[in-house]
Design a protein around this nucleic acid. Structure first.
Lengths: 318, 318
DNA sequence: CAATTAGACGGGCAATTATTCATTCAGACT
DNA sequence: AGTCTGAATGAATAATTGCCCGTCTAATTG
């Protein structure tokens, strides 16, 4: 026993020595092997032992480090395909710029591809801010398609028309949806969607290679309410039905299940797919949205998330 | 200015991201390149930037880590060719075992060589303890030579006969020095050294491929005094002449310069070389010896050191 | 005591990482 | 505008690292 213990101890000592020489002193494994009087392979084993025994601890002295941890944690916890967390600037309340830059980076990377892509977009302030961050580009090979209408029921344009703005910037073919966000009734919705142009656009959206959406909360500060798409009474009914969030105006409950009836009967936007095969990336920031984001992840309505540090903390500590 | 700053910042952010993915998440640089949307070379540059900008900090969770730092510090500060520091066991007062094992490891490594080597040995408790740690070996190709006599002036054997003990263990040719440590006078010393055998041994010692010595302090607890080689009066005279330490009974002052006259006139051991070309490694432990070790390093009487943590701390904080 | 087995070792090779070099590109200056 | 400079980039290549496999050693077991 004592012999084995000593043996193990001295092996760990050597591992520590090797780890120190490698990570702190910057020696190569060959040099370590010479200094420790062992073969290079043994030196390699010692270094890797030092790592696997957790003798070496790496710390990253940069605000980004926390973001990476959070992102990693969210990926693990909710089975996301991707997650990016922007640092929250404690000074600036307009926390959008961080995520907007991140999202813009993602979008830009996709646009740089030579292969034609179909990019589907929802709406929302965060998404709009992201598009604003895009540089001028020339991407005629791609198509940008809207997931939902850009009209109020009375025909007025909605304030956050992301598709057209983006197409402006990057010079791509684009397909805004010539529909109101909500039809006046289920029948009207079906009627509208039977138009060939609308039908084509919905089909295009279904084939999208990547989808970016916003997530809205339901309640007093809900985008849908603030922007006048639903009334106070409808909001109350939705809350009573368990609604906590919405994506492209489709309202869902805590488990991420779409609410039956109510406004969902009249939503004209493309249907959400559960556990989509292609990336569906939500851009969403804010403590108010935490419940909605959680629900969307639980229900597999999205498989990617771009958010900020503060929101990510709440999502993980829930 | 603001643009440049932003640019630099975002570059560092990316570097931090890359560093995190590499060191914390264990990604390969290829994966990082894909995730960050840059070329593999750029990913490599980002990782190395994160290192050179000190964003990644590596810590080693093992007592050895401190020893490695101390060793590195001593090498730098005193221009040593090598330095090893054994962990001090706060519980055990007999701090010798740590350094003894280290030294034994060094010696063993040399003995394993197929090329014939000449190993010169001094005396001392630490050196003796090291030899005790040697395993049984069979090394007829090497020669072990003593740097100094193993007799008291009256012909009695000295207690720490390292060479014979070591030769016992490793079965190597050995050359103990058939001389007293101190002759009775300078004339007697010269006479003794003219014997052919002695002359040959001294020449062999001069050619040694590697030399291991102990370092003694001068004073009340000095090995020379305790073991009865010098008298109290001689000790007093030496101290008055500035003596702080000795190696193979050659006494030197604070600057590592050999003291003129006194006992040095009568030392029969091989002369110390200043700034030796081959490794001359001292094995020395203890707060009492700090002054002596410092002096030996200053005077370039040694170019290698094996000591323990506590002693190393004192050497560096001096 | 022989058989078995777990673990370490080193050789060789594939994968990964670091470096060098020529080129490009943006901005500064003439 | 032309030219220079310095940074950034990608390609090529050199260096380093990680992994697999056959071999050997030592401990365990029957």
């Amino acid at each position: 026993m004592s012999t084995a213990g000593d043996h193990e101890t001295s092996r760990l000592d050597d591992a520590a020595r090797a780890g120190w020489l490698y990570y702190v002193a910057g020696n190569t494994q060959d040099e370590i092997a010479r200094k420790l009087g062992v073969s290079r392979q043994s030196a390699q084993r010692l270094v890797s032992l030092a790592v696997s025994e957790k003798l070496v601890k790496v710390r990253l002295d940069h605000p980004i480090a926390r973001c990476m941890e959070l992102s990693h944690g969210l990926v693990e916890k909710f089975g996301l395909a991707s997650c990016e967390v922007a640092p929250s600037d404690p000074g600036a309340p307009a926390a959008l710029t961080g995520v907007a830059q991140l999202a813009a980076g993602d979008i830009e990377r996709i646009l740089k591809s030579d292969h034609p892509k179909i990019i589907a977009l929802g709406t929302g302030r965060a998404l709009r801010a992201s598009v604003e961050q895009l540089p001028k580009m020339d991407c005629p090979q791609h198509r940008i398609v809207s997931l939902l209408g850009n009209m109020m029921s009375d025909g007025a344009a909605t304030p956050y028309n992301v598709v057209i703005r983006m197409a402006d910037r990057v010079n791509a073919r684009h397909y805004p949806m010539p529909l109101p966000v909500f039809a006046r009734s289920m029948e009207e919705k079906l009627l509208l969607q039977q138009q060939e142009a609308v039908h084509n656009i919905l089909e295009l959206a279904r084939q999208a290679d990547v989808t970016f959406v916003g997530i809205g909360n339901i309640g007093d500060n809900a985008p849908l309410l603030v922007d006048g798409f639903v009334s106070r009474e409808e909001t109350r009914a939705l809350i009573k039905a368990g609604a906590v969030g919405e994506i492209t105006s489709w309202v869902f409950d805590r488990s991420g299940t779409l609410i039956d009836g109510l406004t969902n009967d009249r939503v004209a936007s493309a249907v959400l797919q559960i556990a989509p095969a292609k990336p569906v990336i939500a851009i969403a920031v804010g403590i108010l949205k935490v419940e909605a984001i959680l629900a969307a992840m639980r229900g597999r309505l999205i498989n990617g998330l771009i958010t900020d540090e503060a929101t990510a903390e709440h999502l993980l500590n829930h």
